[in-house]
Amino acid sequence: MKRLIALLTAGVMIALLAGCRKQEASAQIFAMDTVMGVTAYGGSAEKAVKAAEEEILRLEDMLSRTDPKSQVSRLNGSDGAAVAVDEEIVSLIREAGTYSQATGGAFDITIAPVVAAWGFTTDTYQVPEQADVDALLAAVGMEHVTLAESQVTLERGTEIDLGGIAKGYASDKLEAIFEEHQVEHGMVELGGNILLIGSKPDGTAWRLGVQDPAKPNEAAYAAIVQLEDAFAVTSGSYQRYFEQDGKTYHHIIDPATGRPADSGLTSVTVVTDRGSGSGTMCDALSTALFVMGEEQALEFWRGSDYAFELILVTEDGRVVVTKGLEEALMETKESGYTYEIVS
């Protein structure tokens, strides 16, 4: 009988070890004005999630535009003086500058004062006078930013907002953390920024839904793509907007006009493989390509050295998907959209 009990106990252990699942951990973090979800399977999943939480909070402290103590806030309040900051911020601003250059200024972190004039920073929405906007635009552009090794100088009137790449950058940092802790499968959701590590624990691809811009508050998808080891970021006019006098104004400001980008798109999703692109890149490009509009965005995709794929949702009800995602795409029935594959 003793033997029987011993055998049974051993059986339970074996079954639990082998039959069940790998270490799993997840956390939800409220940061950067959104709810972030981090899930990891395998490796030191628990440690990885804990480290991810700390990293997100660290980045928020550093990059926040609304927290007056953050390094970004100190920069913005510098009134033309040079400010000593972490090298990390300098290199992030430098990276932002390269995306700005690559996209012909369609992505620009110095658009911050104009965004603030529209009230998107403080939730006090208003349509500013064009003259005021034009005055602010004079200080917009990366040429007003001077970088040194660990020092940044913003010209008087110029302000930066790293919000356009902060979440993408955070997803890159979390990728490194997950790698360090040998996480085998994982998902990071940072408010519109997704990082997928490996496949799902069951070996199948992750199913990623692209929010239907026409139904922002519903679980409705313009498309579903099956992805593994990828970054995905969406920029959409539905994410933040206000209405005034029957007109809708959204939060993606075109640095060329200082007004909400009127490009005929309702959302742009940039997808890249973990090996060939980064979350920061996806974050910056999704904004820039939204500003550019369908034609220019596809042209950029064809000619760019960056490796990425696109899902564009247009105002006239089309979903335009680039060739590389053809296999991964699952058209969603009843979405009402027509699908186009472009190459």
Partner: peptide
């Protein structure tokens, strides 16, 4: 798990 009864997704981007 909600999601309007469609095949279901693991994450939503947007």
């Amino acid at each position: 798990g909600g999601d309007g009864g469609d095949p279901g997704v693991d994450a939503v981007v947007g």
